[in-house]
Write a protein that binds this DNA or RNA. Structure first.
Length: 496
RNA sequence: GUCUCCUUCGUCUAGUGGUUAGGACAACGGGUUUUCAUCCCGUCAACGGGGGUUCAAUUCCCCCAGGAGAUGCCA
């Protein structure tokens, strides 16, 4: 091998649940690493002590496991560049920050939060050309510093961004991106007063120390690209390759967020999206193979993924298309596999016990082929099969009446129907269907005029799985009770 | 306000200096069907605008507009 092997990382901060945008970044990094026989690293950026939570960290692990994104190095698995959790690398950042101060590339700043807040407010109000820190502490004398230290003020460390010149970095997708140094954040904080690094510092140090070759992250980071290059240069380190990924937006073109619908991967899991469907769909926003092929196994993606095919423009996350993918993946499952995927949803609804009895298992197995082509998400099974597990209320009269049919004819139809239904299992379905059809024609009704009242009486809805299948699953006994009850209700209504 | 990035059907996208601008989802219509769904068939639908360059621009260049992002002791 001629070139240095690829090392990429996904470096989320555990401050919230993993969301669609995040896992898309993870996936692209992961696929790129695999396609290059490279290394995929997970790094936890928990430098914001007030916002990082254990729950979010656990959610990160759960989500990556669920999506089957395995990291070669990182927390839980270790690796040669550990630790991979930034809060455990505290001293490293201290050391490098001190180095920068010593070499004059950074300086301590003693400004209070209040002063900075006021400054920002004034600048915004005045629509000032200068926005951001005013470099107040950039040129403090040693004496002034000593004075502040004496007062016990904990300083932050700020980068001394050059006032002149410009900085360029190369992006695999965008090409060269240049920014004048005076437009770069004016002296951003590198080390906070609690001693923890900011993203900028930790990120650059760790990417260097961990030998990251390609930085693939969302485009929202583009503006800080030059800043990071400045940092690499301040340390005298090589700059990795950049590849800024297009963002994932909601329907309104804004950054995807909760108000667009579910965004946490955990929610998709709970609703019954399959990980392979989610992976497949998410991979197709911002990337395509040839514009035609759109079903990819994960192995194919690991093989065929290339940076060049990534789109530059942001993409809208289309929930409808995800549903379509999910339905396709559900239908591709074997009945047995689908049965076991569905069982937790049935158990949660209280329809079956977990683990379920042999009798329940039998019923689920019989149900699966019937619901399979009707499911968009696994949880749909609950409402779809509720009538099988719970006693339903007798539907209201008008719901039981087919179009253009009176209560009288409907009662007659239902009565005529009962002896036929009782034959279920004894005669063939075709035979039964024939006989129900003739009940309709004898009365000059459409065939639906016979099926629909039965369907509504038995399932409680005008929409259900095929009638005979539904009855078989329900059992003849319960079916008869519901039919008789419907007839009684209708008859009573007639008298009024 | 300033800086940066982006711009092909409603959405995800393919594509080329000369194409009937292709596919998928959605929508709509039709067929199959005991409802729904599946499945099949079809319809609608796009190169943001203005300048160039060129015999020829959706494609190359410039400007504008629109959108997004950044501008934190958050990442």
């Amino acid at each position: 091998m001629l070139s240095m092997s690829v090392r990429v990382r996904y470096a989320p901060s555990p401050t919230g649940l993993q969301h669609i945008g995040g896992v898309r970044t993870a996936l692209f990094n992961y696929f790129f690493a695999r396609s290059q026989q490279g290394t995929f690293i997970l790094r936890v950026e928990d430098t914001d002590q007030s916002r990082s939570t254990d729950e979010a960290l656990q959610d990160l692990y759960d989500t990556l496991h669920w999506l089957n994104i395995r990291w070669d190095e990182g927390p839980l698995v270790g690796g040669p560049c550990g630790p991979y959790i930034q809060s455990q690398r505290f001293e490293i950042y201290q050391k490098y920050a001190a180095e920068l101060v010593e070499s004059g590339k950074a300086y301590p700043c003693y400004c209070s939060e209040e002063r900075l807040a006021n400054l920002r407010e004034e600048q915004a109000a005045a629509k000032s050309k200068e926005q951001g820190y005013d470099r107040h502490c950039r040129n403090l004398s040693a004496q002034q510093r000593a004075e502040f230290e004496h007062q016990g003020i904990k300083p932050v460390i700020r980068l001394k961004v050059p006032l002149e010149g410009s900085t360029t970095f190369h992006d695999v997708l965008m090409g060269d991106i240049t920014r004048k140094n005076r437009d770069v954040n004016p002296d951003p904080v590198l080390l906070k007063s609690d001693g923890f690094p900011t993203y900028h510092l930790a990120n650059v140090i760790d990417d260097h120390l961990m030998g990251i070759t390609h930085i693939m992250r969302a485009q929202e980071w583009i503006p800080s690209g030059p800043l990071h290059v400045l940092l690499y240069e301040a340390f005298g380190w090589d700059v990795p390759q950049y590849c800024h990924l297009p963002m994932v937006m909601g329907k309104d073109g804004q950054k995807l967020s909760k108000r667009h619908g579910s965004t946490a991967v955990r929610e998709f899991k709970e609703k019954g999206y399959l990980p392979e469907a989610l992976t497949n769909y998410v991979s197709m926003v911002g990337w395509s193979y040839d514009g035609v092929k759109e079903f990819f196994t994960r192995e194919e993606l690991e093989q065929v993924f290339t940076l060049e095919k990534i789109n530059k423009a942001p993409g809208v996350f289309d929930y409808k298309k995800l549903d379509w993918y999910n339905g396709m993946y559900i239908r591709a499952k074997s009945d047995a596999e689908l049965a076991s995927l569905l069982t937790p949803y049935l158990a949660k609804a209280g329809f079956v016990t977990e683990p379920c009895s042999a009798r329940q298992q039998e019923r689920i197995d019989a149900m699966v082929p019937i619901v399979k082509e009707r499911l968009k998400v696994l949880s749909d099974v609950v409402e779809m099969t509720r009538f099988l597990f719970e006693d339903i209320a007798c539907p209201p009269v008008d719901q039981m009446l087919p179009k253009n049919q009176t209560v009288e004819t409907t009662v007659q139809v239902l009565n005529a129907t009962i002896p036929v239904i009782k034959e279920l299992g004894k005669a063939s379905d075709e035979d039964l269907e024939q006989r129900l059809a003739s009940i309709a024609t004898e009365r000059n009704l459409k065939i639906n005029g016979v099926f629909m009242p039965i369907r509504v009486a038995v399932t409680g809805s005008t929409v259900s799985p095929p009638l005979f299948d539904s009855i078989r699953l329900l059992g003849l006994e319960t079916t008869m009770i519901r039919l008789e009850r419907a007839i009684t209700t209708l008859t009573q209504h007639m008298g009024k």
